[in-house]
Simulated assay, not measured.
Amino acid sequence: MSGRSPAPGRPEVIALLAQHDECAPGDVGDRIDSLQLAWLVHVVEERYGIRIDLDEELEAMDTVDGAVAVLAGALAAPVPGGSGS
């Protein structure tokens, strides 16, 4: 069993973007710009203690739903060097 928290869903990603933009969650649009994306990846990496390698996934993260999907995949991946007890 993994000690990792579940990946952030749409409401959590919207809340994080609202925090970045200093606005209400209802004011967050569906599109994610490059500054929002950089901040979102940074926060998720810090919160989950992982490194997200975006390469091809970067383009898929230009919307909230795309970011949710990519983050779910990144957090579902095995932790390199993790202990498998």
Rank of each mutant, 00 (worst) to 15 (best):
G29T: 11
V41A: 03
Y48H: 15
A60R: 15
V64T: 02
D62M: 06
I50D: 04
V43Q: 11
P25Y: 06
M61Y: 01
W39P: 00
Y48P: 03
E56D: 15
L58H: 14
G49Q: 04
L37F: 12
D33P: 10
V44S: 04
A60F: 09
A69C: 09
A38S: 09
D27K: 13
L37D: 02
A69I: 06
L58M: 14
T63R: 11
L75V: 09
Y48C: 06
A69P: 11
G29L: 11
A74C: 08
E57G: 15
A24T: 14
E45G: 03
D55A: 15
H42G: 15
D65A: 07
L35T: 05
R47G: 02
V70G: 00
M61Q: 01
V68A: 04
L75R: 05
G49D: 05
T63C: 10
E46T: 07
E57A: 15
L54D: 03
V43N: 02
D62V: 01
A67E: 10
L40C: 02
R31G: 05
L40S: 04
A69Y: 05
G49F: 06
L54Y: 02
S34D: 07
V68L: 09
G29K: 12
V70S: 00
H42R: 14
H42K: 11
D27I: 10
A60D: 15
T63G: 11
E46W: 00
L40N: 01
A67V: 07
D30S: 10
I50K: 11
H42Y: 13
G29W: 08
D65S: 06
I32F: 03
L54M: 13
V43D: 03
H42N: 14
D62F: 04
I52T: 11
G73D: 08
I50W: 04
D65W: 02
D65R: 03
R47K: 11
I50S: 04
L35D: 07
A67Q: 08
